[in-house]
Amino acid sequence: MVGLPRIAPMLATPGSLPPAAVEDRWAFEVKQDGQRAMVYLPGDGTVTLRSRSGADITTAYPEFAGLGSVLGRPAVLDGEIVALDSEGRSDFERLQSRMGLTSEAKAARMARLVPAHLVVFDAVHLGGRGLTGLPYTERRTLLEELGLGGKHWSTPAAVVGHGEQALEMTRTAGLEGVIAKRLASVYEPGVRSRSWIKIRHVRTVDVIVGGWVPGRGRLASLPGALLVGEAHEGGLRYVGSVGTGWSDAERTTLAGLLRVAAIDECPFDKAPGVTGARWVLPRLVGEVRYTTRTRAGLLRHPSWHRLRPDLAPDNIT
Rank of each mutant, 00 (worst) to 15 (best):
R308K: 12
I81S: 04
K151T: 12
R283M: 11
G224L: 07
A12E: 12
T46W: 02
V114Y: 01
V191M: 08
T275C: 01
P74M: 07
T13Y: 03
R52Y: 08
D310F: 09
S97A: 15
S86T: 14
D206R: 05
D310P: 12
G215R: 08
R98L: 07
Y61W: 08
R194K: 14
H301T: 15
T292N: 09
D85E: 08
P115Y: 08
P9E: 09
A105H: 08
R182E: 14
K151W: 03
S193N: 06
A249G: 05
L175A: 12
L77F: 04
R293S: 07
G147Q: 11
R306S: 15
V191Y: 04
S154R: 10
D314K: 09
R89I: 14
H305C: 04
H305I: 04
V82D: 01
V30A: 09
G229Y: 03
G45V: 04
E93I: 06
G240H: 01
T48S: 11
E188M: 06
L146M: 15
A231C: 02
A184M: 04
M10V: 11
V274A: 14
L77D: 05
H125P: 10
E29F: 02
G215Y: 05
E176V: 00
A37D: 03
I81G: 02
G43P: 07
T102I: 11
G68V: 07
L254R: 01
A166I: 00
A225I: 03
E230Q: 15
T291W: 00
S53L: 10
R129D: 13
A107M: 04
E250T: 14
W279Q: 02
P214V: 02
F64M: 08
T204C: 02
Q165E: 14
G127K: 13
M169F: 07
T13G: 06
S53I: 00
R251D: 04
L142A: 15
L142S: 02
G273Q: 13
A249S: 11
A312V: 07
N315F: 06
A173W: 01
G54N: 10
